[in-house]
Design a binder for these strands. Sequence first.
DNA 1: ATAATAATTGCATTTTATTGCACGATATGC
DNA 2: GCATATCGTGCAATAAAATGCAATTATTAT
Lengths: 249, 249
Amino acid sequence: MLKEERHQFILNEVRIHNRVLLTDIADLLNVSVDTVRRDIKELHSAEQLKKVHGGAISLGFNNYNPIGKKIYSLEKKSRIAEKALGLIKEGQVILLSGGTTNLELARRLPAKIKLTCFTPSLPIAVQLLTKTNVEVIFIGGRLSKDSQITVGGSAINMLSEIKVDICFLGTNSIHPIEGLTEFDWEIVQMKKAMIHSSRKVVSPCISEKIGSLQRYKICGVEEVDVLITELEPWDVKLDVFKNMNIQLM
Amino acid sequence: MLKEERHQFILNEVRIHNRVLLTDIADLLNVSVDTVRRDIKELHSAEQLKKVHGGAISLGFNNYNPIGKKIYSLEKKSRIAEKALGLIKEGQVILLSGGTTNLELARRLPAKIKLTCFTPSLPIAVQLLTKTNVEVIFIGGRLSKDSQITVGGSAINMLSEIKVDICFLGTNSIHPIEGLTEFDWEIVQMKKAMIHSSRKVVSPCISEKIGSLQRYKICGVEEVDVLITELEPWDVKLDVFKNMNIQLM
DNA sequence: ATAATAATTGCATTTTATTGCACGATATGC
DNA sequence: GCATATCGTGCAATAAAATGCAATTATTAT
């Protein structure tokens, strides 16, 4: 059995069960626990899951407590969130997609700021409950348990009825030629609808995700008005975007 | 069981009940109190909860409730939730309004049961994320920060498009003559819409609330099909309902 | 094709982490 | 103050992690 197959298998198990035990995987795949341990170690470094004593758990496992959600690459995401904050002005209407970077952004919103904020993300909505002057409007729909956002026709329908000033579009993969791509088809549909409902699209994106590709396309790079990364402006990774009509932060 | 799972479980309990007892957690998880104590110690250092003598409490929320009263009320609500569970059958479509009793109900749904569940309540949606076979459909709308449910035209509109088998209508006040009443006008509108979208209306209600009155009327007692309280069937408090067309549990 | 090199895997050993229990100290409720 | 419950600490048993090593399997170069 190929290592890659095992990795996929493990990730799949984690996706389904939110957790796996080393010994279970070793049994199921007929390999030693050491091998599985090494696999999980690698997937942990790749931030595909979280290694814990005895097994691994899904990164999005905090189904239980979105408020206390642990965030990976927190440093980078915090920097991005700080930058993104600068784009928000008192009284605006914004739209926050899901994702931990946007969760960080929500957490950092000044306590006194007056905003209207649409979101389909459960953790973000919970976070925003603490901001007394932010009017939160939740996009209804079927809850996707993986991503903890609502999806489906009802949600897209609700999105079609709004027009916001800025959309902060959490981004899994951004590629200079292929644009934004996503693993989950339903989320693709949601993100397309969000872009359509927004006057300005801002994409907060940690640098690891630049250049990567997923299965489905959301939109081209030209649809994004602002790209926020944790990098310094002169970083070579950003060169590919420099002659495009996109603002870099 | 993985340590991380215990931690999530404990945080979940804290999030829902605002407080937990070491001994309860130890019982529920079948581990020693020492282990739970250590878990809580770690979560305390991580500032995810506050460790107190005998257990732990939530960091941010309303800890103003006297501890003794809280658990008392919780026990009643748990009893009610247990009774309510009996009404739910595999494959049904249900609607859960907000409120802590319904949250208890959501928490107790069997892990394997297959259901479709509509709700406008943020805490309930979060809770239901853990039930893998429950399809959760969130009623979108403006989030009321007090009640943590969505309200307003958009939510009522979404409710108008559905018809569910059973609605569990968390009830603040039930009066034999005046019917169900509520303090908050927006919630009244939501509850009216929920009743309208349901074939059967079940009202879980702790006995303190029987006979009390609030500002606005939701509906008459005749609109409620089942009233669930923590009381025994022969309790005198229930007499007023006995010649009405309402099932008592 | 074949040899050299690198990667992968399983096993043995050592190190570390987790867990439950015992015991004395401390806090709580009456 | 007394009885009870909870806390903190140390300890031992167990489980899992890390490490080194040898055998096997892939990959590459010639």
